[in-house]
């Protein structure tokens, strides 16, 4: 029974990772950049919820998603757009700068002490000897819904297909009349909204928020995106869920639980050495 509990917890955590990883992978596929500040959008989402929680939890969640969407678009316009076409190293360093800036701003506004943000107290579901928090179930259901919705959106909507086209060949997509700047903007908006949603589920799991909260889940979600093959949407989902399950099982074993992070990152390094394109990624040959 303990095995099953751990497994369900892992799936739920994996759902959160997958949601964040989707943001990474979509931005990477379309703008060809690693958005280092993506993890910090989660943190911004958490603090926005804190600000609006006095109204209503649902209002707070919507406010967080809208605010993060706007923030994602602004960051893209101010920091990343001027560097389109510049060397990848420059873009990466700017993204690190943005991440640093968001963390420092949050620390100035909210202080470095953890804030307790209780969205709702959901209780625990008990079936026989199996006990699972309702938050776990909600997270799992919501993340599956989000993934299905996103897959359908990308596959069937006009904008979604334009996104796929831009990720395959930016120049050709532009010639077909797709507004590439608009597509990149939409991608950042969707990614950031998903990050805000992820922060809701993190807060349901453990109701504390600090200015540096976002960096570790951000890095782990990126790990998940790389494991699944960056640029691939189903890959990000599989990678996220895999990573979540591994994390929960590693934490369940007392002997290796302190090394959980090290194990996850070791998996990343080994996988990159063995299969650099990830599980579902496409191999890109470099041409002169």
């Amino acid at each position: 029974m303990e095995f099953l509990t751990t497994f369900v917890n892992g799936l739920s955590l994996g759902g959160i990772y997958a949601m964040i990883a989707l943001g990474y992978t979509m931005v990477y596929g379309i703008a060809k950049m690693l958005n280092f500040a993506h993890g910090d959008i989660i943190m911004v989402g958490g603090y926005t919820i804190l600000l609006f929680l006095f109204v209503n939890p649902i209002v707070a969640i919507i406010a967080a998603m809208v605010f993060c969407m706007i923030l994602g678009i602004v960051v893209e316009k101010v920091a990343y757009k001027p560097l389109r076409g510049a060397s990848p190293l420059a873009v990466l360093i700017t993204a690190i700068g943005v991440s640093y800036l968001l963390q420092s701003l949050a620390q100035m506004i909210f202080g470095s002490a953890p804030k307790y943000i209780v969205i709702a107290d959901l209780g625990i579901l008990k079936i026989g000897s199996l006990s699972i928090g309702y938050n776990t179930i909600i997270t799992l259901v919501c993340s599956i819904l989000v993934m299905v919705a996103l897959s359908l959106f990308v596959k069937f909507s006009k904008t979604g297909r334009a996104m796929v086209a831009v990720s395959e060949d930016k120049g050709a997509a532009q010639l077909m009349g797709i507004n590439v700047n608009r597509i990149i903007m939409i991608t950042f908006a969707i990614g950031s909204a998903l990050a805000a949603l992820a922060s809701v589920f993190f807060l349901l799991k453990a109701p504390t928020m600090t200015p540096t909260f976002g960096s570790l889940p951000g890095i782990k979600a990126f790990t998940a995106a790389v494991i699944g093959g960056i640029g691939s949407i189903p890959g990000a989902m599989i990678g996220g869920i895999l990573l979540g399950v591994i994390e929960c099982f590693a934490q369940a074993v007392p002997a290796i639980s302190p090394y959980t992070d090290a194990i996850e990152f070791s998996i990343l390094i080994i996988l990159l050495l063995v299969k650099p394109s990830g599980l579902l990624g496409k191999v890109r040959r470099e041409k002169v």
Partner: peptide, 15 residues
Amino acid sequence: KGDYLAITTLAFGEI
């Protein structure tokens, strides 16, 4: 290269 290597070195530091 590039982003992948950056994340690998980051992972190394954390490990």
